[in-house]
Simulated scan of single mutants.
Amino acid sequence: MDTGYQHEIPADAKIYIAGHAGLAGSAIWRAFSSAGYGNLVGRRSAELDLRDRAQTFDFFAQERPDYVIDAAAKVGGIFGNNAAPADFLSENLRIQVNLLDAAKDFGVTRALFLGSSCIYPKFAAQPIREDSLLTGELEESNFGYAIAKITGVMQIKALRQQYGCSFISAMPTNLYGPGDNFTIPGAHVIPMIMHRMHLAKAEGAPEFTVYGTGTPLREFLHAEDLGRACLTLLQRYDAPEPINVGCGEDLSINELARMIADVVGYEGKLVNDPSKLDGTPRKVLDVSRLRSLGWSPSIGLADGLKDTYAWFLAHQDTARL
């Protein structure tokens, strides 16, 4: 769906990357820096609490960014989302409403809101097209986070309609890579399996338990590829509808666990625990719209897992464990 839209971001543009220290935000920062953009702005949550409206507006009044990328969010894996849906709903709503309202009020040229593939119905037709949004029930285990992100998509649409803002939203698939959160049990599936399997290898455990049945199918995108996609979207995409960001390929959780075992060097037996949550049966995105803009992923899963584990080994003293 290449509409022919072209936007040149000035080399000296001030670009605020909200959540720049996180997995997605840090990769976006690297992508823009590598593309020659040197006027990048970021604040850690200890410096700027985006849940606080006054702080957020004061920051915009001081910095006056030309572009905004919202990669700031309270995120977690299936267990964290299921345990604290109110926190995931409330905190993410406040972050994105404050950010996008401030971007509108202070005349930001373009803003990009990052949502999540969990906004789509639990039983959406696969691969999931953008127009499946709001056509069915959500996965119950992460409904708080999903509703917040859906609201962000709707806020983008509303700001475009009412104020003519050139703001857009993108829905990344499951991300992973260096700088990820490896906390047990709060992390997403790749870093949590990787961390747990690392410990199992160190302990010489004869068996490793894969949570759930292992049959759900998932798609994974290296964060560095997301960073490049964000640059492409600000330059080439301008529409009220969200656009998917992924690789368009999936595999089962059990297949993923075997790949991680090869990377980690764990040689024990893999067993499943069906009493644990599985989540959505399958989730793979239709990424034809993004590919039509000239973007495609460059890091395969096998290589991505290797570099993620290498980063984990090198940063165990400072990583989020």
Rank of each mutant, 00 (worst) to 15 (best):
H7C: 07
D101M: 02
A72T: 09
A170S: 09
D2S: 05
L134W: 01
A73I: 00
V271E: 07
L175Y: 05
D273E: 06
F167A: 02
T3C: 10
L293W: 02
M194T: 15
T135Q: 13
L233D: 13
Q55F: 00
A146P: 07
S298Q: 15
F59P: 15
Y16P: 11
I147N: 07
K269F: 00
I95T: 12
T280M: 06
F113S: 05
Y163P: 11
T213S: 15
I243L: 04
H198G: 10
H195P: 05
D58T: 14
D87T: 02
S166F: 05
A146D: 14
F312D: 05
M154G: 12
L114P: 12
R64N: 11
V263Y: 06
S33T: 03
E130C: 01
N181H: 09
V287P: 04
G76S: 11
D49Y: 00
L50N: 15
D307A: 03
L233P: 15
M171E: 09
G25V: 08
N92C: 10
P121Y: 02
A61W: 03
F79Y: 14
D49I: 00
L133F: 03
D180C: 00
C230F: 06
A35P: 14
G80R: 01
L133S: 11
L221Q: 11
K201H: 08
A239N: 15
L23Q: 08
M194Q: 13
R110Q: 08
L221F: 02
K122N: 13
Q62A: 13
G76V: 07
G300Q: 09
H198M: 07
A71P: 07
D278W: 03
V210S: 12
L23H: 03
A302E: 13
Y16D: 07
W311R: 08
S141I: 00
A35H: 04
R196F: 09
N244V: 01
A205G: 05
M194R: 07
G279T: 09
H222C: 04
L221C: 14
L217Q: 15
L285H: 10
L301A: 12
R64G: 05
H198I: 01
N98W: 01
L93V: 05
N98T: 06
L100G: 14
I253H: 10
G204E: 05
L221V: 13
I95A: 10
I150K: 09
Q155Y: 13
P127C: 02
R94Q: 15
L138F: 03
Y211E: 11
T183A: 12
G36M: 03
L290D: 13
G80W: 01
V41T: 12
D131F: 00
P85Y: 02
S296R: 10
N92V: 05
A13T: 03
D286T: 01
A302F: 09
F312S: 03
L321A: 05
Q161W: 08
R129W: 02
G38T: 08
K74F: 13
D49F: 00
L234D: 12
E249R: 11
L114F: 00
Q96Y: 00
H315F: 02
E207V: 05
E63N: 09
Q316C: 06
G80V: 00
L114H: 07
R110N: 08
P121C: 11
V287I: 12
G80D: 04
V68L: 04
D49M: 00
Y163N: 11
G144N: 08
L199K: 13
G212S: 02
Q126Y: 08
T209H: 05
D70G: 11
Q161P: 03
E137S: 11
F32T: 13
G279W: 01
P65R: 11
G179T: 04
